[in-house]
C-alpha cells in the first residue's frame, strides 16, 4: 500500500506492506537505524519513538496507522545537537552497551515533556517499559532526576 509518513518533520511517500511495522519502515526504508529492535513484541522499548509527542513502541505500531501523525525518532531529537537530557545520560553513565539507549532517551524525553520535575517514583513508573539488560537503570534514573532539578519551576 502507499502511504505518507511524517518523520522528523519530513514527509516520505512510501510503498509498503499493509502489515509493515513502523520500526521496520523507519529502519529499512528511511535508514533511521537509531531506532532499535530488541524484542519485536513491545516488551523492551528499544524501538520507542514519539508519535504526536507520546512515546510508543514502534515494533507494535503498524506503519499504516502512523499516517497522519507526526513521528519523531532519536535522530529527530538529536538533530540540533545533544539535548540536556542526552548530556545528563553521558554524565551519569546512564548506558553501557547503548543498544536500549535511544529508546530510553525517547521515553525520558516524553516523560519530561509532561512532567518536568519528576520524582523517583514518577521516573520509575514512566520508564518501566524500557528495559536495559546491562542494568544502567540507576544512571538513567539519576540522569532524568538531574534534568528535573535544573528545569524551570
Amino acid at each position: 500500500m502507499r502511504l505518507t509518513l511524517l518523520v522528523n518533520d519530513e514527509r516520505h511517500e512510501l510503498e509498503i506492506a499493509h502489515t509493515a511495522r513502523l520500526a521496520d519502515v523507519l529502519r529499512d526504508e528511511l535508514g533511521l537505524v537509531g531506532t532499535k529492535i530488541g524484542c519485536g513484541e513491545g516488551a523492551c522499548g528499544a524501538c520507542a519513538v514519539l508519535v504526536d509527542g507520546r512515546a510508543v513502541n514502534s515494533c507494535l505500531l503498524l506503519a499504516a496507522a502512523a499516517e497522519g501523525h507526526s513521528v519523531t525518532t532519536i535522530e529527530g531529537i538529536s538533530r540540533d545537537g545533544l539535548t540536556p537530557l542526552q548530556q545528563a545520560f553521558i554524565a551519569e553513565d546512564a548506558l553501557q552497551c547503548g543498544y536500549c539507549t535511544a529508546g530510553q532517551v525517547v521515553a525520558a524525553t516524553a516523560l519530561l515533556a509532561v512532567n518536568p520535575s519528576p520524582t523517583v517514583e514518577d521516573v520509575r513508573a514512566g520508564m518501566v517499559g524500557n528495559l536495559c539488560r546491562c542494568g544502567a537503570y540507576p544512571g538513567i534514573e539519576r540522569a532524568i532526576l538531574r534534568l528535573g532539578q535544573v528545569a524551570p519551576a
Binding site: 537505524v33 532519536i74 545533544l82 545520560f89
Partner: peptide, 18 residues
Amino acid sequence: PRTTGPTRVSGAARYTTD
C-alpha cells in the same frame, strides 16, 4: 564519562543489526 557516550545517546552508534 565514556568516550562513546555522545555517539550512543544520539542513536548514531552503528551495531551489527544496523
